[in-house]
């Protein structure tokens, strides 16, 4: 089983080798070699272009992600605990779940203009229904024995949420976070492409017009790297911390 440790690095190397092989064989501007992409990547970092645009996109990500998670948890818990509320809002949820992302983005820009709040709102509207549905499922599966215990010992509302409800929702929260990040990344790029003058989406749009594939690939790598960093340094430790009480 010793060799398992090296398999991830080996697979990465083979991926790079394949890319190199195909690129040298085609010898075309539309598929630059890894080497060319690496040089472009480095130049984009040194010039400050890539950090700036990546930073703008990350800022929008953080803001829209926080808003949709907080709102989504509050609404999801409320719907999961209250049958009447759920019966009323269920249809709304289905409507919002099924409106295509592009439609909400266009409508937000048409109604509110090409401004930052409209961009954030478009992302939030796309993400919110997913969070609500996930957290609602989690809330429905809460352990009634523990809820009764909390009531019997007169736990306050905040105490109940913090010590009884949230720990049980933890797997659902992590699920919503992971799927949310993936979804928001993709939507933000479209939002930027359609109506913002900075950010990754805006840059990619420029590169597309110039057929600058090397830059597109360099930005993509930055993108993937950021997501991996978030996974390794934020989500994985959170997972580990949440599971420390298990046998």
């Amino acid at each position: 089983m010793q060799s398992n440790k090296y398999l991830p690095s080996l697979s990465l190397l083979i991926f790079l080798a394949l890319w190199q092989g195909v690129a040298s064989y085609l010898h075309s501007n539309t598929l630059p070699t890894p080497q060319v992409v690496a040089v472009v990547f480095w130049q984009a970092i040194v010039s400050g272009q890539l950090p700036f645009h990546l930073g703008m996109t990350l800022l929008r990500l953080v803001v829209s992600f926080s808003i949709s998670m907080l709102l989504g948890c509050a609404i999801g818990i409320a719907l999961g605990r209250n049958k009447a509320l759920n019966a009323f809002f269920d249809n709304w949820l289905v409507i919002f779940l099924n409106v295509p992302a592009l439609v909400t983005i266009i409508l937000c820009y048409v109604w509110f203009g090409l401004v930052e709040p409209a961009a954030i709102l478009a992302v939030v509207i796309n993400k919110l229904p997913n969070v609500i549905v996930t957290i609602r499922e989690g809330t429905r599966s809460l352990d009634t024995d523990l809820m009764d215990m909390a009531r019997c010992y007169h736990f306050s509302k905040t105490k109940t949420i913090r010590h009884v409800i949230l720990p049980q929702l933890q797997p659902f929260l992590m699920g919503a976070t992971r799927s949310g990040l993936a979804l928001i990344w993709k939507i933000i790029l479209v939002v930027e492409l359609l109506g913002r003058s900075n950010g990754m989406g805006y840059q990619l749009h420029l590169f597309f017009q110039m057929f600058d594939v090397a830059s597109i690939l360099a930005y993509t790598i930055a993108f993937v790297a950021v997501i991996q960093l978030i996974e390794c340094f934020i989500l994985k430790p959170l997972d580990k911390k949440a599971l420390r009480w298990r046998r």
Binding site: D145, L146, Y153
Partner: peptide
């Protein structure tokens, strides 16, 4: 209760402190 109904994600002491 018939089963202890302790919060599994809190330590023994925290479980008691909470009430």
């Amino acid at each position: 209760f018939q089963n202890p109904r302790l919060l599994p994600w809190r330590t023994v002491r925290e479980n008691i402190e909470l009430v």
